[in-house]
Design a protein around this nucleic acid. Structure first.
Lengths: 335, 335
DNA sequence: TTGTAGGCGTTATCAC
DNA sequence: GTGATAACGCCTACAA
């Protein structure tokens, strides 16, 4: 059942059917009714591929993320999909894992599917070594690229991100002011946001002329159990910290488990601040104080920027959002 | 840059270019090299829409789920996407929410995008009132439908699901045998799997000729905080339970919070079994005993069934997978 | 207001 | 092995 069949049964030309299909004004009410009735009868629905071929778009946006089962990325994907759909766009999901070659490969696949744009969710797509970001610049020459929680300065690349540096600096500052002096920063990777968070930790110290030892920073990507064990060793042998800031809530759960194993009372002996304001932060006991990086807002903004870009409007290439600290039980009352 | 341009530069016909593109044997090594070289030079990539139009497929599978930010569904979506991609298919994600009209609408949208099949992740798509499932039967007349954790007997509908009834019956049985006699079943909704889990709870009792009171079953869809409060009331006024089985881990977290507020020791005064074996089960303290419904296996199986269907092979319409109980700290050692 | 005809970039079916 | 050519189903000038 195609546009020709409909036009025949309705006794009009295909052009008229097409006009009705696309809500064109210049069709008499009579003809329109006639055509609509036939479409209804035949339960006709236009062929999206043919339309795509002619218009060179299927109103589809690719979403690239390392792992959509990760709580944080899952939320991002959800918000993005919802918002895209509001604008009539579909979301083609593509999970790359954390390997650079895979990321390149999947970005290539999305391009070959002729998506209208690509949203890269999560800070893992911007590599520390700039030459490894060439694949992004290359892709951006074909379709707009939106980085969620990442940044790269290049034509066609837009970013929507949280000011992680300021957020961690703020949390660090509050610890220092409140008298906690043995701070540990625990982060998962040297990703763009990992580095930015670390920078915040360092800057808050240097602002107060406090030297940061290497033992105060741990970059570790492990399970909750592994984090616990790593910290047991670290606490006993290297650095007996009394406050921890982590780059995600799951790491903070690892700290919680460590504290229990080490017999430390929270927040008295050890204060903890997580990151992301994810659901696991209220599943544990005590519940986690955490930094909320306004993911939903950030996602909605990313989509809004994208829509403007697709409309050919000029938009700022980078938007920075301010995080908020959510106070719960893993920090002192007076914190 | 299209197939005509390539054919011109290579001095061959478009048919030959197409053959090279599709790995057709009947091209001399010479010509093939020539064409490939030109493609390389021009960094040509075929137009997916045109291909879609001709072949009437873009190798895309729609994934429908209520809410991809939900931990369980997020995992399902992830496993499905990974497995689909292994077979060269893309995943078009579509989150419907829990409203029937929205589900219908989005299913319609996916159909109009001409996906090759649709996977419905989560048990919320099969309604209790059978007339409300007509939309599924209708869709199944156009493309294959795969239900993940749901079941509906109709042509073109295939299901891959866990034996929830047996799983809950087993857990209930173990409680009864171990001497726990005041069991509560806490579930979130009357969805297909909700009803099946409840059936397991009931059957285990009736097998031992034990009457189940209404106060032993709570259907409640609330936040962790709300669950806690609801249980405080229920425990004090209706039924002082000493063991709880929940239909998902988050409900179990709510029970944990309740126990703490009520001053009950776990597992001594109150034993808890969750469902889904999700990450929050190891974030809490004590960690949750939970029923693992083999989601990854189930997803992979669903995709495998789908691939067979798309290949025109005959496959069983329904596959039932056996769950496994993961013992942790919220149940007795001897459980 | 309506109709005609050409184009979008492939794949597939024929001939040769 | 290779090349012409007809689909595939829609959109959109341009004509009427």
């Amino acid at each position: 059942m195609n546009i020709y069949d409909i036009s025949k049964k309705a006794g009009v030309s295909i052009a008229t059917v097409s006009r009705v299909l696309n809500g064109n004004e210049k069709v008499s009410a009579n003809t329109r009714q006639k055509v609509l009735r036939v479409m209804e009868e035949e339960s006709y629905s236009p062929n999206a591929f043919a339309r795509g071929l002619g218009l060179n778009t299927m109103k589809t946006i690719g979403i690239l993320c390392a792992d959509s089962s990760d709580a944080y990325l899952a939320s991002a994907v959800y918000y993005l999909e919802q918002e895209l759909r509001r604008f009539g766009y579909d979301a083609l999901l593509c999970c790359t894992g954390y390997d650079l070659d895979q990321k390149k490969k999947y970005l290539e696949i999305l391009l070959s599917k002729r998506v209208d744009a690509i949203i890269l969710a999560g800070s893992t797509f911007v590599e520390q070594a700039d030459k490894n970001n060439e694949y992004l610049r290359f892709a951006a020459r074909k379709v707009p690229l939106i980085l969620l929680n990442g940044h790269l300065d290049a034509p066609g690349i837009y970013s929507s991100l949280c000011d992680d540096t300021a957020a961690v600096a703020g949390a660090t500052e509050r610890f220092l002011v409140s008298g906690r002096n043995k701070l540990l920063f625990l982060y998962r990777s040297q990703s763009y946001s990992g580095r930015r968070k670390l920078a915040g930790f360092l800057s808050a110290h240097s602002k107060r002329n406090i030297q940061v030892e290497n033992s105060q920073m741990i970059c570790f990507n492990g399970s909750i159990q592994e984090i616990k064990e790593r910290l047991l060793t670290h606490y006993a042998n290297c650095f007996p910290f009394n406050a921890v800031i982590t780059s995600d809530d799951e790491l903070a759960i690892g700290v919680l488990k460590f504290a229990k194993a080490a017999g430390l009372s929270i927040p008295r002996d050890l204060s903890i601040i997580g990151y992301n304001n994810s659901k696991i932060g209220i599943c544990c006991d005590p519940e986690l104080t955490t930094i909320d990086n306004k993911l939903e807002f950030s996602c909605n903004h990313a989509v809004s920027v994208l829509m403007s870009v697709l409309d050919g409007k000029k938009v700022p290439a980078k938007t920075v959002i301010t995080a908020e600290i959510i106070l719960r039980q893993s920090t002192d009352d007076h914190f």
